[in-house]
Amino acid sequence: MPKLNMVEAINLALREEMEKDDRIIILGEDVGREGGVFRVTDGLQAKFGEQRVVDTPLAETGIVGTAMGMALYGLRPVAEIQFDGFLYPCLDQITNHIGRIRNRSRGRFTCPLVIRVPYGGGIHAPEHHSESPEAILAHTPGIKVVIPSTPFEAKGLLVSSIRDPDPVIFLEPKRIYRAIREDVPEGDYTIPLGKARLVQEGKDVTAIAWGAMVREVLNAAEELKRDKIDLEVIDLRTISPMDVDAITTSVKKTGKAVIVHEAPRTCGLGAEIIALINEKAFLSLQAPIERVTGFDVPVPLLKSEHYYLPNPKRIVVAVKKVMSF
């Protein structure tokens, strides 16, 4: 089985799905001839031609709006937005149009498209190139939001996203694009949307994370072992719809939770998860839930980036705080 990094795994998923389904069309800035600024679509235009891997003008609203028209007509577009910050100009298309088709038509129409977006910090890039907009997207009705945390996960989740009848925003944690190599099988396998992954069982505290933060949590879990603290780690995988059962089952067991995300704290997804736990598992809670997050400012430049991003040290502190309540 080939050992692939996340870029290669996503490329493989696209390649295999395009071979099977000729309605799949890739479009975006620099995705064709160049193969994408992160080389995720490398070689696909050469293989499938210019009609199926389309270099677009620099026009995000146009790209995403066009994808919607294509999806409604019967194609299966996979659009790429080059960096997280460039998603904001096309929120109109996503929020006002794409997310509403199913509801507006009482399910007679759906909008099967995928918008892939390299996202998140950790690569020393300036603002617009390091954002984590998942909470804004999760707040938008009618779209699914998927975030892989490893190469294997990325392939299985992307295939499901492409085959899903509804619009999916697929956020790719660019920081770990090439950081992890693991076995990624060729050929068909899928990972269902809306189902979290229990990465590691533990009895003391539930840690909930997604994307690049899963790795940080696992590193924290290693450190905590030395103090005999046993962390249960949940990778949400799909931010919307969220796997509420997985969260509550775990919290009912451990009675304690820490949520880790690199997006700003206020109205971040952590707040929503805490509210859900309050609703569903309040009587099991033994301590207030802690959040380890970014700060309420744009992602800073290199010099303060390490301070902004959650790391194992901050996670360990939060877990110990919860343990000693």
């Binding site: 620099l58 910050g85 300036p126 603002e127 617009h128 190139h129 800073p300 430049l301």
Partner: peptide, 30 residues
């Protein structure tokens, strides 16, 4: 990225501002 830079080290090369010169920049193309 120094604090005594034009924008306090916060803007970086794509986000240079000078109020005195009525100048703003953006990394968002367009």
């Amino acid at each position: 990225g120094y604090e005594d830079g034009l924008c306090g080290g916060r803007g970086g090369h794509m986000h240079l501002f000078s109020k005195e010169h009525l100048t703003a920049s953006s990394g968002i193309v367009g």
